[in-house]
């Protein structure tokens, strides 16, 4: 793959007091690929995506977006670049319907008066383009949706804004088997539509079902980047728990580990 990465993080460090959450992380996502970000608890996954989302600012290191160096100093900066995050706890309002949630905070309005027609039409188009067909009515409250449907709405909400990079934080953590499949299919579809996806997950089954490549974090460092087709779950588990034994220090971690 020789394209310019959509986003590239180089040598990112981030400390909270004496805790070094990120210790020189390199991370890149190519256009249109699903990149999984895996690692044990405390490996730095959350901190890393928060650096991309603008919630945290890295202490050191650089972020390149489409080849240009950028500063992401807040969620608004991230949104302007086309980066959207779907957090684990969804951030949907149960009492509002699907359309209202999709446009939450970015309502189509003239002189403060809502344009419901435009919002409903676009919502329906977005859901259709993502083949989210299980939602009966876009005017039903989100409280009445199943977990998978809610996750689909949350993802569609992120995709709607011409985003280029969608970060999904544990999207299947609370879902049953069938609903997990539904969400994973949605993730694959995002990749097929040319969006880049970062999939943060504990579940290697999910990762191997969807990801093109897998980045493994361990103790705040990147210990390996795997091509999904060329690796096994066992190798990834080993990287998560013990690091990559064949890795020699000095070799840039972004060079793909061949196992």
């Amino acid at each position: 793959m020789s394209d310019t990465p959509l986003i590239e993080l180089r040598d990112i460090t981030k400390s909270f007091g004496s805790v070094h959450a990120l210790n020189g992380v390199d991370f890149q996502v190519l256009p249109g690929e699903v990149m999984a970000l895996v690692g044990d608890n405390g490996a730095g996954k959350s901190t890393l995506i928060k650096c991309i989302a603008g919630t945290h600012t890295p202490d050191h290191g650089e972020i390149l977006f489409e080849g240009r160096e950028v500063n992401i100093n807040g969620p608004k900066d991230a949104a302007r670049l086309g980066i959207e995050v779907v957090y684990q706890d969804l951030a949907l309002c149960d009492n509002l319907d699907v359309v209202q949630n999709m446009y939450l905070g970015r309502e189509v309005a003239r002189f403060q008066i809502l344009n419901e027609a435009a919002m409903e039409h676009t919502t329906q188009e977005t859901l259709k383009s993502l083949a989210v067909t299980t939602i009966r009515s876009v005017r039903q409250p989100v409280a009445t949706l199943s977990g998978g449907q809610r996750q689909s709405v949350a993802v569609a909400k992120a995709v709607q804004w011409n985003s280029k990079l969608v970060i999904l934080d544990e999207p299947t953590a609370a879902l049953g088997v069938a609903q997990t499949e539904q969400v994973l299919a949605l993730v694959r579809r995002l990749g097929e539509q040319g969006l880049s996806v970062v999939l943060v997950s504990h579940n290697l089954h999910d990762v191997f079902e969807t990801a093109d490549r897998i980045t493994v974090l361990r103790l705040g460092r990147t210990v390996g980047v795997f091509e999904r087709r060329e690796t096994t779950q066992q190798a990834v588990v080993q990287a998560i728990t013990a690091g990559v034994p064949t890795k020699v220090s000095g070799i840039p971690p972004s060079a793909e580990a061949q196992l």
Binding site: L92, C93, Q112
Partner: peptide, 23 residues
């Protein structure tokens, strides 16, 4: 029918979601 009203319902439904949505 106004953005303000919608945001009132949103904050009442899930203040954290509303905040993350930029309200």
């Amino acid at each position: 029918w106004t953005t303000f009203g919608r945001h009132v319902y949103a904050v009442g439904g899930n203040a954290e979601a509303a905040r993350r949505a930029g309200i």
